[in-house]
């Protein structure tokens, strides 16, 4: 089974996110990108599938800051091929990103596409179902377990409260990974450096076309008071619990 993993770099939330003067975009000067954590799980799940039943793993990402290191890291972890999509510039939202990925996948031989269940900057929806819809293949989101079958996969989708639903999906198809069967492995820097010297990244020119159907009006930090809002009585506490929908 050949698996493609779509990797996306997202703003590192550890940094202070600053909105630029237009008020509609992040200030790129202070922006630091990092691999979407769920995509890291998707990669891990792909590697586990490969280790369990063979096949190739291809990591695909859009050209962006530090993307080479990220792709070499994927190779160091055990991916067989890394594909960098170049020349697209910044893409506007999930929909356009999915379009670019879908086009690039035209040149790749795959059975299964894995990517993270969501990303912190998913303004217009999640990548997995969007790519799937563009490729006209089935998709299931929020996956915590994948088992390879013959021309299909058996997966566990997570609902609230820890209930799982088991599905069987005919391939080719896309899965949005919530968590791999084990935490994403660590690629030692020594190994990444070795791979960097010995392996190469494949490149393909990106083609887009979908500019998204939304526009950003404004980005603002949520209003929060200084520290905790102090409650004076159990009644107030109950009101809070009520508003959070827990009672």
């Amino acid at each position: 089974m050949n698996t493609v993993v779509l990797l996306k770099r997202v703003p590192d939330l550890v940094e202070d996110l600053e909105v630029d003067s237009s008020g509609t975009a992040l200030d790129s000067e202070h922006l630091k990108l990092t691999l979407n954590e769920f995509d890291d799980h998707a990669l891990e799940q792909a590697l586990l599938l490969k280790e369990g039943g063979g096949g190739e793993v291809t990591a695909v990402a859009l050209d962006s800051e530090d993307v080479d290191k990220m792709l070499f890291t994927a190779l160091a972890k055990g991916a067989d091929r890394a594909l960098k999509i170049t020349g697209t510039g910044a893409v506007n939202g999930t929909s356009e990103l999915a379009e670019v990925f879908a086009q690039a996948l035209g040149s790749v031989n795959y059975d299964l596409v894995l990517t993270g269940v969501q990303a912190s900057d998913d303004i217009d929806g999640q990548l997995a179902p969007t790519v799937a819809a563009k490729l006209s293949v089935p998709c299931i989101e929020v996956i915590t377990g994948v088992e390879a079958g013959d021309g299909s996969v058996t997966v566990h989708k997570e609902y609230a409260g820890g209930v799982l639903a088991e599905f069987e999906m005919t391939l080719p198809g896309v899965l949005g990974i919530q968590a791999a069967a084990q935490s994403p492995r660590y690629a030692p820097v020594s190994k990444v450096r070795q791979i960097q010297d010995s392996a190469t990244l494949d490149e393909v020119a990106g083609a887009g076309g979908d500019n998204g159907k939304f526009s950003i009006v404004v980005m603002t930090p949520p209003e929060t008071g200084e520290g905790a809002q102090m409650l004076e009585s159990v009644e107030e506490l109950i009101a809070v619990l009520d508003s959070k929908g827990v009672i």
Binding site: P188, V189, S190, K191, V192, R193
Partner: peptide, 8 residues
């Protein structure tokens, strides 16, 4: 034991 990271 992460010698590569130490070097970096």
């Amino acid at each position: 034991g992460e010698e590569g990271l130490f070097e970096a």
